[in-house]
Nucleic acid binder design. Structure first.
Lengths: 196, 196
DNA sequence: AGCGTTTCATAGTGATCATTATGAATGTGA
DNA sequence: TCACATTCATAATGATCACTATGAAACGCT
């Protein structure tokens, strides 16, 4: 049952690294968003011709969603950050810090892929925007539940505030804000918590 | 020197209300952003044919920037909010509250026009993105100076946090967050200030 | 009325968009 | 070696993009 060694029985083999090409696609989507990324941008960045993209990934929308899954499935996911934190407060702090670092990486585009791709959507890309909104809501719900386990009163508002700060940090990062500035913002945001 | 009664001496008069059409254009840009708004969207929303748009406003970029100026020149501008506040803390609180209200108006699109239009820009619209970023920085600088007049230490971080929350509230509003939720976020954000 | 000026609607510009038809190329299995 | 399956590169598809050439229509002025 070794999946790696399982090969298609017949046919010409793929001439490009499907995984590496997907990473390049993720980078382009990360930098320019979903709609502003043209298939010509993708072919040049991935080094793959358009028909090969379509046979390998489907269409542009499926390629984007696969890039989003790749973006979310890093070694440090927002899910694990929240779940493995000792309490809601630590979850929020780590989420903010991880966002500040992830939005200012020197080998990745500035800001958040989800935030960059989500806004400025035309009518035909409304379903893509809806999927991204669902992902954001999922993260927010997970954080809210984590906070509510400790302190019941204002869990929803605290989680929403944290999400707003993360979203805003993405914009500031795209505007050129430094990593230090984003970490300061995260620190300020955590002052909103009681019994500091 | 009555400007209103001054008319062009010759030529066929404009058959549409230039001001009302600009408002409609602002609404479309507000909802869909800059690049996702096509000229076909604008012609249908404004009730004006494409050549008339070009003779009246220039090109799409100039029309958008004029819509941005219209958006920023309301009766309650961010500038006046900040300047007329008694201190930096009140300026931040009013900015957050005004944003929460303005992003959830029942006759306007959800979110912030600047935030909606800024993200997801292709290379050719980079100058538009740069202009929007300059506007955001101008607001942030004004807020930072206002805060720094009271308390010198962490004015920059407090201003940046406030801007991040405003930006984030726009995203949450577009995701369907209610006015009450945004006001709660604003309230939580103000807890970050010392000597509450 | 007639001229000059401006805006009007119609239609079309080349460019770019995502997507695909086509046939040659390259592999496996027999 | 040969049929079969799959991917390859080339080139083209119709649609849409921002933008405009063109000539008729509607005004003020003389």
């Amino acid at each position: 049952m070794n999946v790696i060694s399982e090969r298609r029985r017949t046919g010409r083999p793929l001439s490009f690294d499907r995984d590496a090409a997907l990473t390049q696609a993720m980078m382009v989507f990360w930098r320019h968003g979903y709609e502003a990324t043209s298939l010509a941008d993708l072919t040049t960045a991935m080094g793959v011709t358009a028909p090969s993209i379509y046979t390998a990934y489907g269409d542009k929308k499926r390629l984007f969603l696969e890039a989003v899954r790749r973006y979310l499935s890093g070694p440090v996911t927002s899910d694990s950050i929240i779940d493995e934190a000792p309490d809601g407060r630590a979850a929020a702090a780590r989420l903010l810090e991880t966002a500040a670092l992830g939005f200012t990486g020197d080998t990745t585009p500035p800001g958040c892929l989800l935030a960059s791709a989500a806004i400025s959507c035309s009518a035909e890309a409304a379903d893509v925007q809806a999927e991204l909104a669902a992902i954001r809501r999922g993260i927010e719900d997970r954080l809210r539940r984590k906070i509510a386990a400790d302190r019941g009163t204002d869990a929803e508002a605290l989680a929403a505030h944290c999400m707003a700060v993360v979203q805003g940090m993405s914009t500031l990062a795209r505007d050129g804000a430094s990593r230090g500035k984003l970490l300061e913002i995260a620190s300020i945001a955590m002052r909103a918590w009681p019994n500091a």
